[in-house]
Design a protein around this nucleic acid. Sequence first.
DNA 1: TGACATTCGTTTCATTTGAAACGATCTTAG
DNA 2: CTAAGATCGTTTCAAATGAAACGAATGTCA
Lengths: 151, 151
Amino acid sequence: MKRSSAFDLESFLPYRLSVTTNRVSRAFAAHYQQEFGIAIPEWRVIAVLGAFAPLSSNGICERTAMDKAKVSRAVASLLERGLIAREAHATDQRLIQLTLSGPGRKIYESIIPRARAIEAEVTRGLSKADVAHLHRMLDRIGARLDAIELD
Amino acid sequence: MKRSSAFDLESFLPYRLSVTTNRVSRAFAAHYQQEFGIAIPEWRVIAVLGAFAPLSSNGICERTAMDKAKVSRAVASLLERGLIAREAHATDQRLIQLTLSGPGRKIYESIIPRARAIEAEVTRGLSKADVAHLHRMLDRIGARLDAIELD
DNA sequence: TGACATTCGTTTCATTTGAAACGATCTTAG
DNA sequence: CTAAGATCGTTTCAAATGAAACGAATGTCA
């Protein structure tokens, strides 16, 4: 009956983040997978390429926080399906310049409105100010993680 | 060069949540694993048992949002190591009452301060009000997901 | 009571994951 | 120039994952 340390998992932020994020990801995955045959890692690659192409695999790693093996597999799968294109870097042969192909861009542009719609649905109940605040907090947490990971 | 749809992944909430959460989880996993030989699913089981024991496996599923296979494996591993104890339910033989053992509770109590410390480090730069606000927003997002998942 | 459905927890199986090894390319130092 | 080391992306391999099948126990309904 001793309750020497009142630790409540429900108010433990890393846990809360993990549960909520996994649920959000699952909600998205269902849509992507079902409507476009695209898994989450692949969608992430398409998304960063749509915004920042050309990128190397390594650049995609940095932008998505996925490890390089995962990126490599997602890229391979997208190449197979002709949704992205690769091109050798002019001076550094190790780098591979990746861009969206025509069909890839089409998918990118048709997914965006849907992604935004799901996002809106998930954040309904939050004001614009709330969402902005949330982003700022994620920024700060990210900055702290930068610092921690350097140790 | 066309930028017909200005979609910025960096301001796309599901993506931001995912990246940040994965980084936080990794930071925690490193500590748990290294100092206590405990993986994240196991730590979650210990955490809910510390707070809400006795619980059945199913009760743990609900509290942690982990699927039952994962819980089953984490429970098996903790039982092997004597960190939790099982006992048959009085009237429903399908249910298994799980509690922390003595050693399990010791680990629970020694992990908590450390978990709190890491949490504090990650959220340094956020005020108490910020953190409270963050929790409220996660609550609301969770409620939206409840609604969406019912469709 | 007996048949049927449901719930609980485990196990199986195919897939996903990430750490580490790897070959290839580039950089740096001598 | 050459040797040693760093970086890039792929691949290998063992572990983690989750959907589904499963046996056991309980609940429901006629």
